[in-house]
Design a protein around this nucleic acid. Structure first.
Lengths: 174, 174
DNA sequence: GGGAATGTAAAACGATCGTTTTACATTGCA
DNA sequence: TGCAATGTAAAACGATCGTTTTACATTCCC
């Protein structure tokens, strides 16, 4: 494992568990097991590092959402929560922590949320057989809600969202 | 307006718009229009101040949710978003920013989320005529989802959640 | 009329922030 | 054999962090 991946992985873990602002670079060098000189050679800056973390996470997350049905969308979220835990959406959290004032971060977040919205819309279309932007918006809201409610309600929030999405899809189908 | 309220109001505005960690006490003294000596007399500490902000916000927010129907719940959220804007849930954001490691903050968040869950459960019961914990969980997820999706989807997310909740309620009623 | 109480302004506290630099060791390739 | 690349360890950078302190002004009440 090269130093850049080791750094990105350590950064994602710390930023996600303790917050972006609350994580100092000292703690990061320690967790990544490298000197600060090496860290900055690969990271550029703290903001660039967070942007790289988000881009990498987008890749991993969106790969899991390569599905054909809305139900599979929520099944994928159940898997994600089981594996990664539920601490809310790292993208929205990063942007909120920086007040949207860090361009690299704001752009990475915007790119992810655009892609996410598009993916949900596509899956709803494929599952239904035709476009339905309003229903897609509802499914997106359920997904986002499951992500955030799971922080304090646990996995139950995701299965509730899954069931609700099932009802909405069934109603749209008939 | 006494100094404590002026301080709490200024703190809520800055913490919400720029983040808790990103907001320094210097900026806070400036915004509140008072010396740091006075600020600390009323605030105790930064963490205590954030906890007071959250408790105050819980009061304001929960007051708006004193309604009888699920539809009114989402109407109240539409109002809230129109007035206060959509930057995600300040409670979840505060806890995430501090990694849950600041007891005053973690406790204020837990208290709010417990109260919120209870309120949603009560409103669903009242609207339906009988208890339905599963449906309440779905409505809670829709509400949480609307709050967070509105950050990037705007008010449309809230009306989508409102419509979805209407469908789920109607189905449960018949 | 004299002391609490409450406020301001500003300096100072040690700690930590993100980042750069200095000095040196190790490796791999021409 | 020798140089370029890549790494470490550690000190230093100025800035800013949350918080306390010093010194002084104002107000209110007994």
């Amino acid at each position: 494992m090269d130093m850049t991946s080791k750094l990105t992985a350590a950064a994602e873990r710390l930023f996600d568990r303790h917050g972006y602002m609350a994580t100092g670079m000292d703690r990061l060098t320690q967790a990544a097991g490298m000197s600060s000189r090496t860290l900055y050679k690969h990271a550029g800056s703290k903001a660039e590092l967070m942007a790289r973390v988000l881009t990498e996470r987008d890749r991993r997350f969106m790969a899991r959402l390569e599905v054909r049905t809305v139900d599979a969308l929520f099944a994928a979220l159940e898997d994600w929560v089981r594996v990664e835990g539920a601490r809310g959406c790292l993208f929205l959290r990063s942007r909120a922590e920086t007040g949207g004032d860090t361009p690299e971060i704001a752009e990475a977040v915007a790119a992810h949320k655009t892609a996410f919205h598009q993916r949900v819309t596509e899956v709803v279309s494929a599952d239904l057989g035709h476009d339905d932007p309003g229903l897609a918006e509802q499914v997106l809201v359920l997904f986002e809600g499951a992500t955030h409610a799971a922080v304090y309600r646990g996995a139950e929030a995701v299965s509730a969202a899954r069931a609700a999405a099932g009802i909405l899809m069934e109603r749209a189908r008939t």
